[in-house]
Design a protein around this nucleic acid. Structure first.
Lengths: 202, 202
DNA sequence: AAATATATGTATCGATCGGTACGGAAAGAG
DNA sequence: CTCTTTCCGTACCGATCGATACATATATTT
């Protein structure tokens, strides 16, 4: 008994959709939304155009799913950082995570959420807006967490949680740009440390 | 006597090349290298494809010239900042300039040197590398200036000029990303101020 | 077995990409 | 004037863009 998964009707797909999405994420990460062609994507995914469209809809929705996977995979340090006990530890974990992810030797340099589409033509406008919303969502999450820290007395009462969140995200975004410019992990870890030397209240 | 400019032989061009380059720069700034099509560029420049190729070579060299114009125009705050008397003032002028340029109401949001091509496909690889070199050149200039400040006793002798330069550029790059994410000039000015609170030695 | 439903592979669509061939137009040189 | 040089406008090139039509293959359902 229990929920036995019934085999879906029709011919089963001949590839692992998760694995294919992972590959697509890497391509978007490395080449950006507009720079990643369907040929790049499908050849990296190991499937044909037809299979991609059947499984993921179109390029734009493939990109959105790839961004979700990025959020829950490489960028999961964000959610972990938010659970740190103090605001200072939240900020440190967030920046350290940014440094590590943007300089992983087995992944493209930089951050998918930044470099996949800061500026775009008509074809990439939706992806660009999706990414801007993604980044702003990160700021909001940090702000809410810092607001709680103020309420709890973890941060001084005159602290501006929104400003602090914007500041941390700004440094993280800058780290992503520097990573794709060739800065090393050591370089950026020192930058992240320096960015936290002016932490309020301590 | 004197250098009297002799009219060039052949039909004179019917447009202002500087003005056309300025327009092209705006398009690259707004849409990025890959996102800016020849149709976007030439229609904004007010000239035909043929005239563009005759005057600027091709898309890539047009982009390089547009980046030079950006350096000497909107991004000229960098050269001015480097001439400030103290390292602290250099850093403050550089970040303030970043904030102002990336949030000008009459220009696209963000920084051309960042958003025009962080990630790119094969077609934009050269532009991406050109931009990375441009950003790294900025870091080098800041580092040299801070190194001089250490020599002059303006900064403590144990200061790492390269780290300080990387830090300032990281914040500036992050400001550019945040500007294109919708952050306001006030938001980012506060971020810039916060980034300088941990200035070494004072 | 036949019927149905989904996946795959090929071959291609119209649109757009960056780049150009070619002929006419507008200037100086003779 | 004619000749030469350069610029401009049209019309077009092959390549690539994202997306699809169609036939075939492989599964479940009846």
């Amino acid at each position: 008994m229990g929920t036995q998964k019934k085999a879906p009707i029709g011919r089963p797909r001949g590839f692992d959709a998760d694995e294919a999405l992972e590959r697509a994420m890497r391509v978007f990460w490395e080449k950006g939304y507009e720079g990643a062609g369907l040929t790049d994507l499908t050849s990296a995914m190991g499937i044909t155009r037809t299979s991609m469209y059947a499984a993921f809809g179109n390029k734009e929705s493939l990109f959105r799913k790839a961004l979700e996977r990025y959020t829950e995979g490489p960028a999961s340090y964000t959610a972990r950082a938010l659970r740190e006990p103090t605001a200072r530890q939240v900020a440190a974990a967030f920046l350290d995570g940014s440094v590590r992810v943007t300089t992983r030797p087995d992944c493209p340099a930089g951050c998918l959420g930044v470099q996949a589409g800061l500026a775009a033509g008509n074809a990439g406008a939706n992806a660009r807006d999706t990414l801007a919303a993604w980044r702003n969502d990160g700021v909001d999450q940090l702000r809410d967490r810092f607001r709680r820290a103020v309420d709890e007395g973890d941060l001084p009462p005159d602290t501006d949680p929104g400003l602090l969140a914007r500041y941390i995200m700004t440094v993280a975004n800058g780290i992503a740009v520097q990573a794709v410019s060739g800065a090393t992990r050591d370089d950026l870890q020192h930058v992240a440390d320096m960015a936290l030397r002016n932490w309020p209240g301590a």
